Simulated scan of single mutants.
Amino acid sequence: MTAVAHLYRGEVYRSTIWRTRLDTTTNWAVVTLGVALSISFASPDASPLPLVLVGVLVIFFLMQEARRYRYFNVWRARCRWMETHFYAPMLDEGDLHLEDNWQKTLANDYLHPRYHVSLMTAIGRRIRRNYLWILMIQSLAYAGKLAVHPAPVESLEQAFRRADVGPLPGEFIVGAGIFYISTWIAIAIWSHFHDDRRARLRKTDSSMG
């Protein structure tokens, strides 16, 4: 009992540390987007290019956060497994129901550690939780910059000319931006249905991962 209590404390500590690391990468993404907004809207003549370039950094932070989430999910799942199969039955019935072999599932996870979710699932979950809003703000800010600076846009052709980046025409930049945001939205939607399908296939109310 004492060993399990210390084990649980250790897993809670590790999940807390990795949860903090998730917040750190989200904060970095928000700060960099804020810097890009400040630069692009500093004056009517300022270029909207920083709002395009910051997308690379946002995606870099998303990849980092998804990787960290996969680690966090391992510690979180172990904590939840012990809560639902050890502490809750002990407090409610005084019977640990070892015949269900839940302890073997936990032991196997320690003997053969692995990620509980794929990288794509982790990416989708982080987009749904935080990054969809960041990406939407970035996209709306870019569209707003083209629409109002240096003067209110009067035609679609004029908006495309404002979006030109060196030899790259504005049509290409805008099209790439639409593909960019659509891809991440599609991943978020896919992960939502994927998680729902996994939940329906579970044989118990709680699961590792």
Rank of each mutant, 00 (worst) to 15 (best):
M1K: 13
T2C: 08
A5W: 00
H6C: 07
L7I: 03
R9W: 00
G10F: 06
Y13Q: 11
R14P: 00
S15G: 00
R19S: 14
R19W: 04
T20H: 08
T25M: 03
T25Q: 05
N27L: 11
W28L: 08
V31C: 06
G34T: 02
G34Q: 04
G34Y: 00
L37H: 04
A42P: 03
A46R: 02
A46L: 05
L49C: 00
L51S: 05
L51V: 05
V52Y: 03
L53H: 04
L53A: 11
V54M: 12
F60I: 08
F61C: 09
L62G: 07
E65C: 04
A66W: 03
R67A: 10
Y69G: 05
Y71R: 15
N73H: 14
N73Y: 11
A77M: 06
A77E: 01
R78A: 13
R78Q: 13
R78V: 14
R78D: 08
R80E: 12
E83T: 11
Y87M: 09
A88Q: 06
M90G: 12
L91K: 11
D92Y: 06
D95T: 11
D95P: 04
L96Q: 05
L98H: 04
E99W: 08
D100Q: 06
W102D: 05
T105K: 09
A107N: 05
D109R: 14
Y110G: 04
H112V: 13
Y115W: 09
H116I: 02
H116C: 07
S118E: 09
A122H: 00
A122G: 02
R125S: 12
R128F: 10
R129E: 05
Y131V: 02
Y131G: 03
I134K: 05
Q138P: 00
S139F: 15
L140C: 07
A143P: 10
G144L: 07
K145R: 15
L146C: 07
A147N: 02
H149F: 15
A151N: 11
P152W: 01
E154D: 09
L156M: 12
E157M: 11
Q158P: 01
Q158Y: 02
A159F: 01
R161M: 14
R161W: 08
A163K: 07
V165P: 05
G166E: 07
P167A: 07
E171T: 14
E171S: 15
I173M: 10
A176C: 13
F179H: 08
Y180C: 05
I181A: 13
W184M: 15
I187V: 15
S191K: 07
H192K: 13
R197P: 00
R197V: 01
A199N: 12
R200S: 15
L201D: 11
L201S: 13
K203Q: 13
K203C: 05
D205K: 14
D205E: 14
S207N: 10
